[in-house]
Amino acid sequence: MLDINAFPGRVTCITGPEKNCGKTQFMNYLVQKLVRKGHAPAVMTAGYDGEARDLLNGTKKPSVYINPGTIVVTPERFLRTSTIFPEILEVVPGSTSLGNCCIARAQRAGTVILASGEGNSSITWTLTYLEENKLAHTVLIDGAFNRITQVSAWHNSQLVYVVRVDTVNVKKTIETLTRLLMLLSLNEASPELIDTETTFTMPDVLSLETIHAIPERIKTVILKDFTRVFLPYRELKSLLSEKQLMVLRKIPCAGIPVIVRGLSFKDFYDAVPDLPLKELIFSNPYQDS
């Protein structure tokens, strides 16, 4: 079940394993819920060139419905074509293939397309600007698909992971969610554990290439956060059977909405292993049970 109180005062990155998994749709839902509760979130996206190409080719992208007073971060060309009567507050440094991104305040209700350039540095800059200028204390980022590292770009961030399941990809999705739950459950390493005889702190990511750098004798591997794990499910499971994995910083997950099609949510939920944090999985908010 989605707990709307988990969102105010935080930066939430809404991401998912693939394109068109329902991230923007979910963000629309979340924005309206927050507005009804009296919060005015800022909305932005962590774009990717693939999405930019869609936009440039005219492939339809979902718009986000905005209320007056909402802070929006998007290229100026989309502000111009929006209906929100924007007041430009600042220009985000650096330009993108879609032009310069702006931070703007909606003066009217309406819809706007969100896009941005690549890179976590512009997200960090924008979030810092929003925080320092007290423009919004609740931020929703429509993340690029499969770019889970974006959620670690900010100190006060959390994740929402949207998945779309049908009869074709159900096994793969269960594996994806199992992997995610395993990572979300990793414990936080206390300072005394760092750089001891039996612990090893990964300097960067944990991947199929870097896993060989872990000495045999090591019992506990410590990473900055779970987004640094790039091991596929089977390799991760195998590692966890031999060693303990810990993180310096836990990144919370506010929920895992699952959009089912061709099967029931209950059947899917029951098929997911009973791992800690399984209760984060909830059904499509656009589907009545």
């Binding site: 629309n28 839902y29 309206q32 009804r36 499509n284 908010p285 656009y286 589907q287 009545d288």
Partner: peptide, 16 residues
């Protein structure tokens, strides 16, 4: 007996 609750659409069971 279908509550949209300000959603643009809703997915309902065939029985509805």
């Amino acid at each position: 007996d279908i509550a949209l609750n300000e959603r643009e659409f809703v997915i309902v069971d065939t029985s509805h």
